[in-house]
């Protein structure tokens, strides 16, 4: 009788494994999945406060967002950042990684730390610093005036194109080092002998980089791409703190507009905000899927 009840060694180990997993799983379910399901349910409701009720038709919020010029504008802004900023940032990151991977370089650690340091700065504080640097009476205007490049102060954050430019510059400053670290890690996994072989075969630096480094780094490149797309689509702090969406809402991002619909501007419209959040989710999922499809050449 007793022998039957006793678990085998394998079963015991399995049980222990489940025990370890269950806590984390429960927490993810409660903290992450449950709110997501709730948000999905909320996205089928409409109205504010006491008038919060089921939408009629059920997909009212989802239809509404495509008729909402402001939301479409925020989608456009976000994609603009995505298309311009992500490629520039990743190319810069890979070049920097290549430079700093040089074995003969002195003070490599110092340089690497310098490039990575911006990532240690909080999003809000760096946004506010960029805001003051690019203020009409700010540092950039002062330097440009002293160097006689401009005669009158530029209102960087007051004009659409310059405001977008400032946001993109800020993003590049903040995130290049972060991506560089991934590339550095990837580069260090490449055997030096591969390069020696290339050298013996007479490949120049460019060919080595293009035909050896890039293909070998491919998994890392895809990962950084997905992360960058994901991050840019959810851009929030820069839009809120640097420009507050202005001028005339031409720099507002999707997440910022979602926030404005839930807090920020009076009584909350949580149903609509949730629906827009799911739109962002679908966008991220589609883009990530495309990225994986394009990047994966294994089968």
């Amino acid at each position: 009788m007793e022998k039957k009840k006793k678990m085998s060694l394998v079963a015991k180990q399995r049980a222990a494994g489940w025990m370890f997993l269950i806590l984390a799983t429960a927490m993810i379910v409660v903290m992450s999945f449950y709110p997501m399901v709730q948000a999905l349910i909320t996205s089928f409701k409409t109205g504010t406060g006491k008038n919060f009720k089921w939408a009629d038709p059920w997909n009212y919020n989802y239809i509404r967002m495509f008729q909402d010029k402001m939301f479409m504008k925020s989608v456009g802004n976000t994609f603009l950042y995505l298309i311009i900023q992500v490629p520039i940032m990743l190319i810069l990151a890979i070049l920097l990684a290549q430079l700093l991977n040089n074995k003969d370089l002195k003070f490599r650690g110092l340089f690497r730390t310098c490039v990575f340091l911006p990532c240690a700065v909080s999003l809000v504080s760096y946004s506010l610093i960029f805001k003051s640097i690019f203020a009409t009476q700010g540092l950039v205007n002062m330097i440009l005036t002293k160097m006689h490049i401009i005669s009158e102060n530029i209102n960087w954050l007051g004009q659409t194109n310059t405001a977008r430019f400032v946001i993109i510059i800020a993003l590049i400053w903040r995130w290049t080092g972060y991506n560089m670290v991934f590339y550095l890690a990837g580069l260090q996994n490449i055997e030096y002998s591969v390069y020696e072989a290339a050298k013996i075969d007479g490949a120049n630096a460019w060919k080595t980089f293009w035909y050896m480094t890039v293909p070998l780094l491919k998994p890392v490149i895809i990962m950084t791409f997905i992360m960058s797309i994901n991050g840019t689509l959810q851009l929030f702090d820069e839009s809120v703190n640097l420009t507050n969406g202005g001028p005339a809402n031409t720099t507002i991002t999707m997440s910022h507009y979602i926030y404005n619909n839930s807090f920020g501007q009076g009584v909350a419209n949580f149903g609509y905000a949730s629906a827009m959040s799911f739109f962002v989710l679908i966008l991220v999922a589609i883009l990530a899927a495309i990225n994986l499809k394009v990047g994966d050449t294994r089968d």
């Binding site: 909320t42 996205s43 959810q234 959040s277 989710l281 999922a285």
Partner: peptide, 20 residues
């Protein structure tokens, strides 16, 4: 693909719960 969407989903949870 499922894993990728799950990953982005969990990153998005911040958004979702903001709407919560």
């Amino acid at each position: 693909i499922i894993l990728a969407s799950a990953m982005s989903l969990s990153l998005l949870a911040g958004c979702g719960s903001a709407a919560e």
